[in-house]
Design a binder for these strands. Sequence first.
DNA 1: GGAGGGTTGTACCGTTCGGTCCAGTTCGTA
DNA 2: TACGAACTGGACCGAACGGTACAACCCTCC
Lengths: 196, 196
Amino acid sequence: MARTLADREEVVAALAEIFRDHGFEGASLSTITARTGLGKGSLYNLFPGGKAEMAEAVLAHIDGWFQAHVFRPLEHGGDGLAAVEAMFQATDAYFRSGRRVCVVGVFALGDARDLFAAQVRGYFAAWVTALASALVRAGRDPAWAQADAEEVVAGIQGALVLARALNDTGVFSRMLARLRLGLAWNVPPPPDMTSR
Amino acid sequence: MARTLADREEVVAALAEIFRDHGFEGASLSTITARTGLGKGSLYNLFPGGKAEMAEAVLAHIDGWFQAHVFRPLEHGGDGLAAVEAMFQATDAYFRSGRRVCVVGVFALGDARDLFAAQVRGYFAAWVTALASALVRAGRDPAWAQADAEEVVAGIQGALVLARALNDTGVFSRMLARLRLGLAWNVPPPPDMTSR
DNA sequence: GGAGGGTTGTACCGTTCGGTCCAGTTCGTA
DNA sequence: TACGAACTGGACCGAACGGTACAACCCTCC
């Protein structure tokens, strides 16, 4: 009788895929009922706040996943470089090598941005911060680690955009490989930017 | 009497900002009439195909601008490195150092992706190809130039996502600086990826 | 088996959507 | 000044929107 937690989790997972495909505006309740198999009554029973609450639940779900599988390992994993490598693997798996797109990124660019500004900002800020801390642990100069981390997170997001736009997952794989290399070199900026 | 080209250009420019802010789904006709100051009659006189034609006009307008100010200079400018530097400057100016977002990127991630798939893909493909050709002219190994170009274009797109999500244009500026440096170094991948 | 509360599908609500239509206005031409 | 085509704003349309209400329907527990 009592709805189990697992049920809600399943629904949230389905909602995540719907928002991923259609964005917030594009995901209509009729789409949602069709793809979840639940009527409106059930949906509003689970999410009294309507579509906005569904989206928030999805964002929270995603944030929870990244906290557990990406952010915390980055911050508390022992070896910095190993933690970074684990992040790349988890990221590649999560985004299915570029076949999947980032819901938070979609929300960041879409019309719903203002509605979910705090969650969107928190997600990316947490990612950058966690990655930077791992880089510092790996020996990177703290003054550069933050910018390094930004570059990697932005690179991942951009690769998702490009992979979807070009319909070519190779872009995502290549980008991940290059970001890995860039961190492995760990080269400080040269004094003369024009030298080649 | 005959509507001048300038008028249409102005309307398309206004439409571009609307789609930039709201995406395709989020830009309702009422928003459009309010922000353009034109009634529906005028809009449908200019764009008989409705919202889809407006969006196509915007994409064509953007493509035209990038062709003229970015792609062609990249492909036919004399010095490869100078052409790349000019691209970075034009890009920074166009995106207002990260305050503006990329309409094509927004469309690529949004629900309208399928409607405009060809234009979205064409835009990014042209950018990558043009940049790669300039890199080759600058002496870069053709085998790497394509991936270099992908990295830069993806980096720019990702920086736009991150800058908007974090509401911090600094991300965009830093990313542009790093991408410039990355190309200036022009470092080949090391044989041993695990070395630091 | 009967009772009763949580859960479900669906009919329905007012609103807003994209789009059509047309009477009125504008403006170059003669 | 008079004409007529091009243009304009806004009333209007059916459809679809997000959301509400509620009767039917399980279950679980006596």
